[in-house]
Simulated scan of single mutants.
Amino acid sequence: MNDNSPTPAKRTEPQPDPHLDTSSDSDEPAFAWMTGQPESRADRKAAEAAAGPAEARSAAADGAGPVSAAAEPATAEGAGAEGSGAEPARDELSRADSTDAGRTGAGHTAVGSSPAAAGRETPLAGAARHQSSPYYEPLPTSALQVRPPEEEVERRNAERESAANAKPVAPRIWQVLLALFYPVILLVLAVRAVTSPLFLWIEYNRPGFPGDGYGFNTDDRMTYGSYTVDYLSNWAGPRYLGDLVNRSGASLFKDGEVSHMADVKLVILSAFGAGAILIVLSIVAIAYLRRRSTGGVRRGLFAGSIVSLAIILGLGALAVLGWQQFFTEFHRLFFASGTWTFALEDTLIRLFPGQFWIDAGIVIGGLVLLASLVTLILTWPTRRRRGLLKDDEEAAEVPA
């Protein structure tokens, strides 16, 4: 389109959008960046006078882009030119178009400019233009660039470090339970080893074991003693011992002896049952710690071995200082008074004299002590077991 082109009939000026009409805006500088127009009224009038004829404004409204007054002579002169004469006119028009597009802010379209021209400005150019103006609003993300106080930064870092170094509670609980279960399990297993026919055979056949002054030989002791030990670990009733007779046909055990062995059986079976439950729980604890806590099994068994050593050394010291007092207090702890004392000619005393209980105590203490020492050695927290040796090797491989 040029100046010689006929104007269409009944062509009306485009009506400005009421939301974008800036004719009633205040002259205050604070609104200059919103309208995209010069800040003073005199500057706006000068710009309107230099805007050119109505045809240029109409073309700009139709989407052809704003044409400045300086571009109109170049366009008119180059309308009939050919070759190189048309190229300078196009370049001048392009520069005028880009100048007008830069004057319009992103998202703010001035009156008489097309939306296409307003959308040519990039976000970075709009941000730079707002920052260069003395009146601009901060970007929405400007608050992220504000650094909090040093105290707040240190507090957050401390909380982050504490959360990173905090260990779960469940593995610690299982480690403590494993450490408490271990000495009880060792004691129960040692008692089970003593209450067996094998230990009876070793005791009755070892040199120095006192004989029976009332007629029992080693074979009689082994036979009657095996019945007594078997009764402690089976589910038979008191008749298992009450119906036994000796060679002469008389009852082997008195009623008081059978009643006491029934009490002993209740204590032994309770201990075996508790030991079985603790073994199952210990297996669960070991399986859990192997999956959730590196070195948790080792630490639990190490602590349990220390507890076992403390218990067995304490009990051994009491037994050595006064065996008779220790034996009496042990029976008072589990049995009613008067139900566990017998005469020397009674069958229980003839089968299990005082030396038998001393040897049983020594064997129980020795087994627990040996197992605790082996566990302590195998779980001792060396640098390799704690993983420190691997860290040292990796550090040595790193060049200085």
Rank of each mutant, 00 (worst) to 15 (best):
G105Q: 09
R147H: 04
G78A: 15
P149C: 04
E161M: 11
P123E: 05
A164C: 04
S84Q: 12
A164Y: 07
T99V: 04
S162R: 14
R103P: 01
A81F: 07
A117F: 01
R147E: 05
S132A: 12
A89T: 06
R156Y: 09
P140T: 02
A117T: 13
E154F: 07
T141Q: 05
A118G: 10
R129I: 01
G107H: 13
P123D: 05
T75K: 15
E161P: 00
P115Q: 11
A163S: 10
A118D: 03
S162V: 02
T141V: 04
G126H: 15
Q131K: 15
G83W: 14
P134E: 10
R147S: 03
V146W: 02
S98I: 13
R156G: 00
H130R: 15
R156T: 03
L93W: 12
E137C: 05
E77H: 14
L139I: 01
A128S: 07
R95G: 03
S84E: 12
E159D: 02
A128G: 05
G83M: 09
A74V: 09
G119E: 12
E159A: 05
S114M: 02
V153H: 12
R103W: 05
P73V: 02
G107A: 07
T122R: 08
T104W: 01
T104C: 12
A118Y: 01
E77A: 14
G105Y: 13
P123W: 07
P73F: 02
G102A: 13
E154A: 12
A76K: 03
G112Q: 02
A118S: 10
G102N: 10
R155P: 01
P134I: 11
Y136S: 09
